[in-house]
Design a protein around this nucleic acid. Structure first.
Lengths: 333, 333
DNA sequence: CTGTTAGCGCATTCAT
DNA sequence: ATGAATGCGCTAACAG
């Protein structure tokens, strides 16, 4: 209360001890007599002392910061990854420095530049698409780097996620096994979301194995959303290709597709089957639970942090962790 | 490339100038000859120099950090507020330090304690419910503080949001005007989400004005979710009070309620009307767009930042900004 | 337009 | 179990 910006020295003076002793009490380090500890603690609360991390960091040449670069917060998938990261960080004394790139590598570079000046112990980002500068910043140091969501390329240091190409393949095999033959595809902007593109590629490959192919597709410009999925399915069906199943770029889009079917009087599965990606809660609440693939977003974030913090210095070998996916059978396909 | 941790001194040496000159070039401060600027910049890129913000902050006694405390990231409402905050911060050179409290005042206190050691220029948090310690930390300094979402109490410094009590009142008047008489209520855990409680109180008050009251209610323990809304509506209807309209604690819950109606063969609006709160995208995509109240989440975040940064020192008077709400008529009530 | 001098608040030696 | 001296990397306040 007395002083909004008391320093170690102030506390030391009031407690009648040296600064370093206060520092030790604060950090719970080394042997301190019960007596001094009490004097110090009482001085601390009397002065409302709050340590200055900037000074601490400068003196010890080490931060407790983890830089986190997320493409978006609007897509619920990333908050879930973030929850996993927060869970991994809990109790370690580390703090996340969060930035949102809007799927833009230049934004990512700008944020990273700014974050690097805080000397984070690790950087967590998304995917493998970075600017040259970003790549240099990430590669040059011995700082640990995790690239999340995707494991279809070679990481700088650590990749944690799932194979989206393989997810696409599994989707087509699963649906082909169920007897579907006329595949439609409804997606969103690929240039921003490269993983959606990988799933599409896998889907096409899986179909080719069975001698099948996509009979009609609609790509909605802009990001994925329920509205986009609804509109795009309407557009697709208007083309007249009469698919018996439509694969969506993700669950948000698929839920929109489901709404279109409800509104248009299309009986889902009998008239038209729907398949998504992610396994979001909302899809599983629908009167007909969405058939989809579950990605383990929380786990991706959590695992990444655990690996990063368990080995503070970057190993010579890169590492890839596959968090996998599972088919959710549902009732829409 | 050469050195992952070059300092100002290294750059100065290589460029053949003094440290302060480098510092000025980096910060774009004061008049610098084109010649020196070039020498310095070339040295910087040769060394891959990255400024050390901790040192800068210590020397200048000022950070560019804004502490942001959000209750949750799972509820899409808060990422939207965060987008508003990010938008307000854009181009100002400020960075958010984001923490998630899980609606827990003790978590909030712990995060704030930790954040305060970074000497943020402002703190943005949610609601008026804080621990004594939190309140002391927030009040004592001359640091600016915004409390978001709610304006039904007296803020420490600045409140930005809407009156949830009034939102509840408007809801009951609107529905009463539409002719509804038997009101049901489906909600989620109030102890965590005090604003949902305020809306409920307002709802009851608005009903009382017309001599009406709630005929049946179900509170689902735990946070709001589509699943919770679905389950709770089923429970409510099983009670047999036969409401003609059900007000939900928010849109997530209401969408769940809508799904229950679809699955149970209840024709929405004719058999049972539904009303939400927030105006989320998903609700407006449904075959029958959800009748609800729109809150302006993005604006809340953006406005808060703008006011906070426009007046760096806390004014003597507290200030409250009402971002309002509007009725979305929809087709479910 | 550029440089010199002095810290910012703390933690790491090495003593005692 | 405690303390003294020193410097982390940078910037403010003055010079020139």
């Amino acid at each position: 209360m007395t002083n909004a910006n008391a320093t170690l020295a102030d506390v030391a003076r009031l407690a009648g001890v040296s600064e370093i002793t206060v520092s030790r009490v604060v950090r719970n380090l080394g042997p301190i007599s019960e007596n001094t500890r009490q004097k110090v603690n009482s001085a601390i609360s009397k002065l409302d002392y709050v340590p200055n991390r900037a000074a601490g960091m400068l003196a010890s040449a080490g931060s407790n910061l983890v830089a986190v670069l997320l493409p978006s917060l609007s897509n619920i998938v990333f908050p879930e990854v973030m929850r996993g990261i927060a869970e991994g960080l809990r109790g370690t004394g580390h703090q996340p420095l969060i930035g949102v790139t809007d799927y833009d590598p230049l934004q990512e570079e700008a944020l990273l530049t700014s974050f690097m000046s805080w000397r984070p112990v690790a950087v967590i980002t998304t995917g493998f698409e970075h600017t040259e500068t970003t790549r240099r910043m990430l590669s040059s140091g011995r700082i640990r780097v995790a690239e999340l969501m995707d494991i279809d390329s070679q990481p700088i240091d650590l990749a944690v996620g799932l194979s989206h190409r393989s997810a696409g393949q599994v989707t087509s095999r699963h649906l082909a096994d169920l007897g579907y033959r006329r595949f439609g595809y409804v997606g969103h902007d690929w240039t921003a979301d490269r993983r959606a593109r990988l799933r599409y590629d896998g889907l096409v490959e899986g179909l080719a194995e069975r001698g099948l192919s996509i009979v009609a597709e609609t790509l909605n410009p802009g990001p994925s959303s329920t509205e986009a999925g609804k509109a795009a399915l309407a557009t697709l069906l208007a083309k007249g290709a009469a698919p018996d199943v439509v694969v969506f770029s993700n669950d948000d889009m698929a839920v929109g597709g489901y709404f279109h079917c409800l509104a248009a009087g299309i009986e889902v599965k009998r008239d038209l089957a729907l398949f998504g990606f992610n396994g979001l809660e909302i899809g599983q609440c629908m009167p007909a639970p969405l058939s989809t693939l579950r990605s383990n977003r929380f786990l991706i974030g959590k695992q990444a942090v655990e690996v990063l913090l368990s080995t503070p210095k970057r190993p010579d070998e890169t590492q890839t962790i596959d968090t996998g996916f599972e088919i959710i059978v549902g009732k829409t396909a």
